[in-house]
Write a protein that binds this DNA or RNA. Structure first.
Lengths: 328, 328
DNA sequence: GGAGTGGACGACAACGTTGTCATAACGACG
DNA sequence: CGTCGTTATGACAACGTTGTCGTCCACTCC
């Protein structure tokens, strides 16, 4: 800026005025300054500007489990869309479900003085964020609630969705329904299992510990698990898959076996409608999830001081075929 | 930092020393300072630190077309992985294929003094980045080359892939092969068409303008296009889909029609192996694409001064069934 | 002609850090 | 006992901006 000022024959402050479109600069002077800026290819240092101006850095932090997963990338995109509307940039990070990594990312974002943070929490301890919250950095949790902290949270109705899946399968005559979910450390996995159990009770379907598995999904693990559930005297006739990855693993495992249980997945999956049979799922809109969370965050940024909110978004059953078959 | 210094009864500089793990601080003093930091929950301002220290902000800029698209989110993830290894944060932005938006993002990133940038270019004019490049900010282009600029670029072998698709279909007896690609404004779409044409020539397959379509894909548009190509006297017996979105639209369109042309898609698609018939594709690894580009960038950041490099990654045909059927 | 008004601009400090240099206290050495 | 090196610490400037306030000039109005 100094160089620009010198070249234009004005003071550094006048350059600042021009850069910031402040009034009270003679058009002729402004033109000279702009020419100098152009010539020297000057670009104002946003960091210095933010430092001087005080708080707002025009940056948002977003922590998800894995940007590479379509679910989280959809969420990321939705957040980005809202952020663009407010002229903010988004710093993204994947926690890989590791609480330490999440914490590291969060603190790093705080050090960079993000204006706000959106977090898909990995662990269950988030008290370390309390000072930040109290210091005025709004934080919104998405998809899962924070562990030991009260803050804005946007969830989907996991339990109701799982219960609906059970009810649907029971309505088609199933009495032996299995549930394969993600690791019980994950909130959504626990909630979906809870909904599954409640659905079983409501539908008068018996529960069998052999037909319930919660575990971090892998192709092999899911294949073995489901194989065990579909064989033997009390084999399952229907399966509820706990999330998109499990659904995919399950489909692949079933394609390589002769079993054809009824199936309802949680989370929608691309091309699910083109499979044979088309896969029925409990669907919800990641876009809405991300947008809602981001809008909540921006409301806070604009001064909303109301008590922490908890939003639960609805899910709905998409019946495509795989869930509408009677027991063999 | 001032407050911490006061509370610990030391000068602000000593606090700085402690925060930066500099030696020559008495352990006892350091302990007092750390206690004060803990008590006041002090977090050093990364912006101010970067300002004082000079260049490196520990930030990378990444511009893709759409983080929500699995292709780009996979790339994002790969970049992130490399960045974490070097202790950098990633600022992400989606251009939506809009050159103005891309430029806006790029300049914004420059204003934030990112240490380097990874760009999946939207338009074909990138001369505006030359001053940044010359100023020492390394920029690597991924998936598509920059328009009017010489810089590091990582591509996949689009033409060879498309040619391989044609050769494969021709080997199964097809003589009427159609190509449905993305908008010709996109480099990869043009290259794939070029490869398609070359493949036709090599295989001695005639080309028919009626069987070639380049257009921004939409479900409706693809359906109409393919319907036209598959009916009439000189109907196509095989189709090459120009990218993942087109493949998906195409599959959906075909599922609702009686036509069953042979099909080879470009880019792999999740669940493609479970469809009936399983979808053959020209596959390549986004993870490798992202990683290679990021590694190239970090090489530059570590002082690599060699002339701009151009890396072309291989693609390979995955024969699953849909491309291995003879003409009806 | 003097007072008042408003426009155009600059000097200076400050944002939160850190690099540079100076200083003080201390033991060791000849 | 004076000198020296070492260790621990602080004062101060600087990074690149911008907010505050002051100055200067031209102009208007009575």
């Amino acid at each position: 800026m100094n160089d620009v000022a010198r070249l234009a024959g004005v003071s550094i402050k006048t350059v600042s005025r021009v850069v910031n479109d402040e009034p009270a600069v003679h058009p002729e002077t402004a033109a000279r300054v702009l020419a100098a800026i152009e010539q020297l290819r000057f670009r104002r240092n946003a960091g210095a500007s933010n430092l001087r101006r005080g708080s707002a850095t025009g940056t948002l932090g977003l922590i998800v489990e894995d940007v590479g997963n379509p679910f989280f990338s959809g969420l990321t995109r939705a957040v980005e869309r809202v952020a663009v509307g407010f002229g903010k940039q988004v710093l993204t990070g994947s926690s890989d479900l590791d609480p330490d990594r999440e914490r590291e990312l969060a603190l790093e974002f705080c050090a960079r003085r993000v204006d706000g943070m959106l977090v898909v929490p990995a662990g269950s301890r988030h008290a370390y964020l309390e000072p930040e919250l109290r210091a005025g950095t709004p934080i919104v949790f998405a998809d899962r609630p924070p562990g030991d902290l009260t803050a804005d949270t946007v969830l989907v109705d996991n339990a109701a969705g799982a219960a609906a899946a059970v009810a649907h399968l029971a309505a088609h005559g199933h009495r032996r329904i299995a549930f394969i979910g993600d690791s019980p450390e994950i909130y959504t996995a626990r909630e979906r299992l809870r909904g599954f159990r409640e659905g079983c009770v409501s539908a008068g379907v018996g529960q069998d510990a052999r037909l319930i598995a919660l575990r971090e999904p892998s192709a092999r693990g899911v294949a073995d698990t489901v194989h065990g559930m579909l064989t033997g005297p009390d084999a399952a006739t229907a399966v509820v898959a706990g999330n998109n990855r499990i659904t995919v693993h399950l489909l692949r495992a079933l394609a390589h076996s002769e079993h054809r249980p009824a199936l309802v997945g949680f989370d929608d999956v691309e091309l699910a409608d083109l499979l044979d049979p088309p896969v029925s799922v409990i669907a919800h809109d990641v876009g809405v999830l991300g947008r809602t969370a981001a809008e909540l965050l921006f409301a806070r940024l604009q001064g909303d001081q109301s008590p922490p909110r908890k939003v639960v978004l609805p899910v709905h059953l998409v019946a495509r075929g795989s869930g509408e078959v009677a027991p063999a």
